[in-house]
Design a protein around this nucleic acid. Structure first.
Lengths: 272, 272
DNA sequence: CGCTTTATGTTCGGGAGAGTACATAGCAGT
DNA sequence: ACTGCTATGTACTCTCCCGAACATAAAGCG
């Protein structure tokens, strides 16, 4: 339950970092700096090489593909189950993507080179990060089909659920305008879709916020894409978690200093 | 021009493998088997772990996201500039994707574990493969916006151009039905779009084939998505190539055995 | 050769969503 | 309270594309 006094760096609330064996985190952890990300902040933009990788804990980010005419369509959302900068981690920056803070909060920042370096030896860090890269790829791929074949109402449910999964509260800090920007549709289409959800009793609106009061209702109205990517994300995350405990190194560390699970739980977050 | 007699494994015509220093290819090359892939063959399917990674040389593949109702939308095409199985390489199989042979031909096959193993040390193999993974991600991301905002005619031009880039001939073995399946649209919409291109003099149709006679015309009619992903793909591939020659190991090898570039050139392929 | 199969061309109705214009309602600041 | 800004609601036209039904044409085959 309690971390040892010698453990100066707190156990990470980012689920990827938490999946690392304690020894690994103790070694690499000091390269991570905890920072607060304000709403609307841009982590990286097209054709600009980001020098940092960001692991959200309480913040939620959106990654979007930006077109020349100004449209920007979200590829996926990133919360404590992942990290922002997959493109920078794999290669050298993204030519097309922008990452912005959708829900302000905290996270861990690390210099790109330091992370790449920490991945050079064949260890848990690398497999955890690559596994997330695949999860990311799956989510992006599914969004392709989702955009083509599903109605705006269905897609809206999907994005709301994805946001919910990555956030502690059931009140999402979103205006219709924000959602439209995220989905690459007109603001009016979002207004219409949210009104339907309101009448159905799934959400309650406040000015600039959407309160989800019937999660199950949203799931029923969402397309298969939510379920598919959720299942896959959970599966890959679970693999990382069990790898943690399969590691003899981790086992040794647990004996010495006790479990290093995050101490606070996020009741509303289904990635808990 | 000519490879040395001692070099039993021919220089690879897959551009990623060709970007490896000669020493690396000599070491890892014997794990690759050259095989022929017939039209329509399925390399991997959703929720089935593929045990092999495939590096096309003369074949072209399509990777699609499969929905429950049968729709399948291409994420991107894979030719000699890449490899099939990014999802298997990063993690453990794809939950949603299917890879099929669009244009039959040859390529190199390698067991998944052997490839992962060859990437364990921090070397050219890993950086080349990860770099392609990012290129792949970029292409998939761009397709999201493309599907939402661009007309079927524009998208058709994009797919034809992408196919052209990955194939030696300017005659694409595609029926309207195949294209529709690829793009996730009705066959009739493809017929209409191809007729427009015909009248414009960009393509000539044969039964079951499309002959491109005005590449520039296609580029003019395509959306920005083709240019964007092409530029990014070229950039990342070029980085791999120059890394090859920056390597002292490769420099030594060149002195000993001469350049190891592919001996045959594909005039029509812009990845040449 | 005629028959079948497969590929392509054509048409019509309908729906989802874009573009546009404008109306109303919360909230903030002075 | 007044003012102004931002968020949300409503209405209308227009285009693209889907769904479906059907017509024609090219290749294969007995």
């Amino acid at each position: 339950m309690s971390t040892t006094a010698s453990n100066l760096v707190p156990a990470p609330q980012n689920l990827l970092l938490a999946a690392l064996p304690a020894a690994e985190w103790e070694r690499a952890g000091r390269n991570f700096k905890s920072i607060f990300m304000p709403l609307g902040d841009v982590l990286y933009e097209p054709a600009r090489l980001a020098n940092h990788i960001f692991f959200p804990t309480t913040s939620v980010l959106a990654v979007s593909c930006v077109l020349a005419d100004g449209w920007a369509d979200a590829l996926t959302l990133i919360g404590r189950e992942g990290f922002a900068g997959v493109e920078d981690f794999l290669g050298r920056g993204s030519a097309i993507c922008r990452a912005v803070v959708l829900s302000e909060g905290w996270g861990y920042l690390i210099r790109r080179e330091l992370l790449v370096q920490a991945c050079n030896q064949d260890g848990p860090m690398r497999s955890v990060l690559l596994r997330y890269a695949q999860s990311y790829l799956t989510q992006v791929g599914q969004t392709i089909s989702c955009n083509r074949h599903h109605t705006i109402a269905q897609q809206l449910c999907r994005w709301l659920l994805m946001f919910l999964d990555r956030q502690a509260s059931n009140v999402l800090p979103l205006t219709h305008e924000h959602i439209a920007e995220l989905m690459g549709v007109r603001r009016e289409s979002v207004t219409e879709a949210t009104r339907k959800l309101q009448f159905a009793g799934c959400i309650r609106r406040q000015r600039g916020h959407i309160a989800v009061i019937d999660r199950t209702g949203l799931e029923a109205r969402s397309c298969e894409c939510y379920r598919v990517t959720k299942r896959e994300t959970d599966r890959l995350l679970e693999m990382s978690r069990s790898a943690k405990f399969a590691s003899t190194q981790a086992a040794l560390d647990r004996v010495r200093s006790g479990p290093s699970e995050p101490s606070t739980r996020h009741a509303a977050s289904s990635f808990a």
